[in-house]
Every structure is written in C-alpha cells, then in structure tokens.
Write a protein that binds this DNA or RNA. Structure first.
Lengths: 185, 185
DNA sequence: TTCTATTGTTTAATATTTTAAACGATTAAT
DNA sequence: ATTAATCGTTTAAAATATTAAACAATAGAA
C-alpha cells in the first residue's frame, strides 16, 4: 500500500512549492483558510470534493497528487565521465544519459561523429520518435527520401519507423544531442 | 484537468470489475454497505480516509483510482532559424524543435540561459520525464532536495513530477539541449 | 407459493468535516 | 514602540458524511 501517504504533509509541500499562503490558496480554491490549515495538520480527512477544490486552486490533478508518492528517487545528475558509452560503430560515439534504460521513458544521447563517419545505409527501428540538435560540425541526415545537411543549431525530428541514416561529411568532428522515446536500444 | 471525474461511477465500475457486492466490499474495507451505496450514487463526496479504506478492500491505490488520463508525412529538418522560440522569462531562451507539439511524443528544446538567469522558485509539471545535456557554460539544477552544478558534457534526468529549478550562476551564457516526454507546455 | 438469502436503496441518529470568526505570532514600515 | 499587514492556528456552529437498521426487489430451492 501507500504506507505513509500523508495527505496533510503532501498538500503543504505542494502549496509551498507554489509559494502560496494558506489564505491565498483558499481564495483561489473557494474554501476557507481554516480548512487548509486543518487538512495540512491531518486533523481532518478532507472529502474528495473539497480536496479537489483545493487542488484546482494550485492547479493540480487528483491523480498527480496521489501519484506523488509513487515517484521513486533515482539518480538525477550525471558527470560527463559517467555517461554510458554505447557501442559506436566506425568513429561514432554514443554517450547515454543514465544506465537503467528499462526504467525510463526517454533515451538521451550525446553523440559524436568522427569526420567521414556514417551509421550505414539504413536501419529500421521500433515504433518510436526521435529528434536532436546539432551542436558542432556538420551532419547529413537521410530520412525516407529526404536528405539534408545540418549545421550547428539546426535540428531534426522524425518517426523512427522511417529508414534513416546519419553521416558526417566534413573534416571536423560533429557533436549532437538527441532524444528518443521510447528507448530503442 | 479531470473535468467531470465521477467518483461514484468509477467506484461502481471498479467494484463490478472485481465481482464484489456492495456488502462484500464493505466488509473487506471496514465500512458499511450504505456508505458504498451513497458514494456510488454520488449522494456524498467521501472523505479521503473512507475512500482509501474502500479501495483497500479491492485492493487499489488511490493514485490508480484517479489516474484516468492517458499519455502517444511530417517536417523532419529544421534550420536553426526555424526553431520555434518559446516564451522565455528573464534571460532564458527556449527554441523548440517542431511547432506542432500536439502531434509529437517528444519535446526537444535548445535552451540558452543568460548569466544569472533563473527559472524561478519551483514548478510542478504533469506526469512526464525529462533530461538533457549541458553543452556550454554552467547550470545549477535543483530537483526535489538534490542540487548540483553541471558543466559541459554533464547531464541530468528526472521525473517531472518532482519540483525542479534551473539556474545559471556563472558569468557565461549556458547552452543546453533537453528533451521531455510527453511534451509539458 | 413460501422460505431464505442476497441484492441495492433509504432514513434517522451519530460522527466528522467545513465554515466563520477570533486569536496570537511574525514581519516591515513609520 | 506602534501601527498595519500577513501568517498559521484554533474554536463553536453549521453543513456534510457515515453508521446502523430497516426497506424493497430479485432469485433459487423446497
């Protein structure tokens, strides 16, 4: 069960996160400040109706409110050296943010393409979407029958089911940050 | 928001899915059958305490009970100038890859933080996950009770339901590429 | 039919939440 | 020090939820 789900503590936390006083929130929610005080002290167990009114003043959905305790505490920060190096063929380096891919909805990669490197003809991925931004150097991307040369600041986004290919045609290393959902490998 | 969330109808549905009579569920939950009848008819707005007791008899978590809402040839290439500038408060610039957010499962941003810029105290987002890589400069990130100063090549990843804040404490502009799924604004 | 068991509903009494207003504490300005 | 404003807390009264018990309807068995 949600062992120590503490409605009062959670409401107080949420309210304070939004820099609202009890009175301010009460006014927005259409309840009295006393109600909020009592709820936050767990001196009452609010009705669904009044809790919903209170959360509307934030605003926050009931589902999000009750899902807060389901948020696991996981590793958030990753030093550059901590990024997971993924098998990169011929001059291509993929550094992944986070190791435990199974848990995550998003795969974020810091990619580096050596001069003349190429991901190969084509590859089909699972059903997913991906995109990225070119940071440095040049990258030629082919998606379906479209081809384009991108430079720093340029970006792409496509459905991964389309055949695609990445190539660095220049003499300089190319650097890209990309994201894919759901993770594809 | 959960516009017309109907507690009674939802409870009745859940109960019937589990082939429980009102009395049977009441016994397991430690409430009276009348209570369940009144709730299912929406003649009362149950307290969190009693609704939790009722759901324990199923059993079902409150977060699951309230969680109804679901989470899902177009333009592929975007020149740097084509990226959509999103309202960035005080010295913060967001450039979004692609304009039609509704269609996409992924929001990718090229962000620039002016020296001393700050996203503000904290904000809670909807249920989603986000992460990014710092390209240039320094960025101080606070997530829940964790804080860290990230430099070029460093990265982050977290559940967006946690309160978070981004700040550029340095004298140099900070550049970040981030991704979020599903899009949050 | 008649009995028994089960179903969901209703109602008066009880328990709890919610309100409205007052209270004391804190901060900032004069 | 003294206002004035704002904060969170408290309390008696009002509003609402919950209980316990009775009610009505259905279904199956004797």
């Amino acid at each position: 069960m949600e062992a120590d789900f503490d409605v009062g503590q959670r409401l107080r936390g949420v309210r304070e996160m939004h820099s609202l006083s009890q009175r301010e929130l009460a006014k927005r929610a259409g309840v009295t400040n006393g109600t909020i005080s009592l709820i936050e002290q767990n001196r009452v167990s609010p009705s669904i109706g009044s809790l919903r009114k209170v959360l509307q003043g934030i605003p926050m959905a009931l589902s999000d409110f009750f899902a807060l305790d389901a948020v696991p505490r996981q590793k958030v920060f990753f030093a550059a050296e901590e990024l997971l190096e993924i098998a990169g063929a011929g001059g291509i380096s993929y550094q992944q943010v986070g190791r435990d891919l199974g848990e995550r909805a998003l795969q974020i990669l810091h990619e580096r393409y050596a001069p003349r490197s190429d991901t190969g003809k084509t590859l089909l991925r699972h059903e997913s979407e991906e995109g990225g931004v070119v940071i440095r150097g040049q990258l030629e991307i082919t998606v379906g029958d479209q081809r384009r040369l991108l430079g720093p600041g340029d970006a792409y986004y496509f459905d991964s089911r389309l055949p695609h290919r990445f190539r660095n045609p220049g003499d300089e290393e190319c650097e890209v940050v990309s994201a894919c959902t759901p993770p594809s490998f």
